[in-house]
């Protein structure tokens, strides 16, 4: 779900960089409010590398297999650090793999990073319901929703960008059926991302619960 160079018009790319700059400012401000941002830096950097590498895993959904986006779980584990982690991950993907692009880096960061931050904030709200539900179902519900929100919102931003930048010569009927097919194709991915986030969070809760307490 990366937009490569050349697809979007320049004003959209510039707007993407402007929004990404604003979000970076807010995220860094929040990070500097923590007790020791320098102590968190290696953790965020190495976990960002692990997520970057881990997104190459292909998960089977017969008859095909898909790569996960993992931005929801990234937000849940890294909190505000998820934003720089995604920004850096996208930069490295553009440089090392040619995946995404340098002119679309801002747009791609907004598309992947904002949902990650929202998913992370949502995941943190589970503590409010700690008295109402047992820990495991509570973690299950919130991790599923965090994973699904991450990729679901990214897909929504992606479709919005396509709708606003699609060529005006495209037939209305063709445009509608194309977008509907794309949206339907993303529903199983959203569910899979949610389920995978639940499995991952249950694993982390068993072996290293502190990783979920960002």
């Amino acid at each position: 779900m990366h937009i490569p160079d050349g697809i979007l018009p320049a004003p959209v790319c510039v707007a993407g960089y402007a929004i990404a700059g604003g979000v970076t400012w807010v995220a860094l401000k929040q990070i500097h409010k923590t007790s020791d941002p320098q102590a968190e830096l290696p953790k965020a950097a190495l976990l960002a590398a692990a997520f970057f590498v881990g997104s190459s895993l292909s998960v089977p959904i017969p008859p095909v297999s898909v790569h996960l986006v993992l931005n929801g779980v990234l937000g849940a584990v890294l909190g505000w650090y998820a934003w720089p982690a995604i920004l850096i991950g996208l930069l490295l993907q553009a440089i090392l793999l040619g995946h995404g692009g340098l002119t679309t880096l801002g747009v791609d960061a907004v598309m992947m990073g904002l949902p990650a931050l929202l998913a992370g904030q949502f995941f943190r709200q589970r503590h409010r319901f700690a008295k109402a539900l047992a820990p495991k179902p509570l973690l299950g519900i919130f991790s599923f929703l965090a994973g699904a929100i991450g990729v679901g919102l990214s897909a929504l931003i992606f479709f919005t960008l396509i709708v606003f930048t699609i060529p005006s010569t495209l037939n209305q009927g063709a445009e509608q059926s194309f977008l509907t097919a794309l949206m339907i194709a993303h529903v199983p991915l959203i569910l899979l991302e949610g389920v995978f986030t639940v499995l991952l969070c249950f694993f982390l809760m068993r072996v290293k619960p502190e990783l979920l307490e960002q």
Binding site: L47, A50, F51, L57, L199
Partner: peptide, 15 residues
């Protein structure tokens, strides 16, 4: 999921 979790865990400890 266990593979991804182990990778995160190793990265965290390395960090």
């Amino acid at each position: 999921a266990a593979l991804m979790g182990s990778l995160l865990l190793r990265s965290y400890e390395q960090s």
